[in-house]
């Protein structure tokens, strides 16, 4: 790790201003992703602002009948919350499908959304990577791309977003609450939080320097059968090859968000209208512009079959 200075944040506004104005300033909360990358010198912050002491660790009911989840709520606590288990089962299921018990005890709601890709070429500092070192090239393209994106990728980057939780949040239409330097708040629909790689894969979200996620809100429950179906190389503690977060209603309508296929949680609302017409048409519509590599073309039939299994399960 490169040397860095450290302070404990006293308030959101102060922390935001410190990170915005101090060169190399970064927030640290759970630290499970940031420290991992700092050890490899992929992340090299010069100053860490520890926000763990801030009052952002509660789950509250909103006036609209939804839930407001503090940025620091740990993955374990979010998955275990009785209201989440009852009305947002998809979110609980996605959380417990990710990482290990130890990591979920540390990892936070906001940090989970902002975690970096697990592309092996991003992690291997001997390889070119446009995300780690803009302009250096992409070793994944033409490389071992079995676990890479099949949709929304670019000539600069074919990495995927690794989060399970974010797939559930996308299907649940979550909204991200932030505080910007200067104290201005904003609300970002989760659909707009993550961006596609394009020519600038090092830019992964619309969050600005110093801007802090303070909460994630869920609208009131939509009912239906909640399923998180994750396919991975091991039965536990592995990132998804593909995952599907689904909410299926009795009338056959529903919502589908895909993980392990793109630089962001992948959901095409218009394609969900095809659900009553069957799996094949639905998946064709969700992944209309898919450009898999030779090594990850298996993801297309895998998604089709996994969705088939989900719909069969939802029908009971």
């Amino acid at each position: 790790m490169r040397p860095f200075s450290y302070e404990r944040a006293k308030s959101v506004t102060e922390a935001v201003d410190t990170v915005a104005h101090r060169p190399g300033g970064r927030f640290i909360a759970g630290g499970t992703n940031l420290l991992d990358l700092m050890k490899l010198q992929i992340e090299v912050p010069g100053h860490l602002v520890d926000i763990n002491g801030l009052d952002l660790d509660r789950i509250e009911e909103t006036a609209e009948g939804g839930l407001r989840i503090g940025a620091l709520v740990r993955n374990t606590d979010l998955a275990a919350d009785k209201r989440v288990r009852k009305s947002y089962g998809l979110l609980s299921r996605a959380l417990v499908a990710g990482a290990s018990g130890q990591l979920r005890n540390k990892a936070t709601t906001a940090g989970n959304l902002l975690q970096r890709t697990r592309c092996p070429y991003f992690y291997d500092t001997n390889q070119p990577c446009n995300k780690r070192k803009p302009g250096s090239g992409c070793a994944a393209i033409g490389g071992f791309s079995r676990n890479h994106a099949i949709v929304g990728a670019s000539e600069a980057c074919i990495a995927t977003h690794p989060s399970d939780m974010a797939i559930a949040m996308r299907a649940l239409d979550a909204t991200i609450e932030t505080v910007k330097p200067g104290g201005k708040k904003r609300h970002i629909p989760i659909a707009d939080l993550h961006v596609l790689p394009g020519a600038t894969p090092h830019i992964e979200t619309v969050i600005e320097p110093g801007e802090m996620i303070t909460a994630v809100t869920l609208p009131k429950p939509v009912g239906g059968t909640h399923v998180y179906h994750k396919v991975r190389d091991r039965a536990s503690y592995a990132f998804a090859l593909i995952s599907i977060g689904a909410i299926v209603q009795k009338d056959g309508t529903g919502r589908i968000a895909l993980g392990g296929v793109a630089h962001k949680p992948w959901r095409v609302e218009a394609a969900e209208a095809e659900l009553p017409r069957g799996v094949k048409t639905t998946v064709s519509a969700i992944l209309a512009d898919a450009k898999p590599t030779r090594e990850n073309a298996f993801k297309l039939p895998l998604i089709e079959r996994a969705l088939g299994a989900i719909l069969a399960q939802a029908r009971g």
């Binding site: 640290i28 630290g31 499970t32 420290l35 290990s100 018990g101 130890q102 005890n105 540390k106």
Partner: peptide, 21 residues
């Protein structure tokens, strides 16, 4: 998981957290 310890009763990976935290 070799570094697992209990912090305030909860298990964590002690390698992925700073002592100062």
């Amino acid at each position: 998981g070799a570094c697992t310890v209990l912090v305030d009763g909860r298990r964590i990976n002690s390698c992925l957290t700073l002592a100062v935290m």
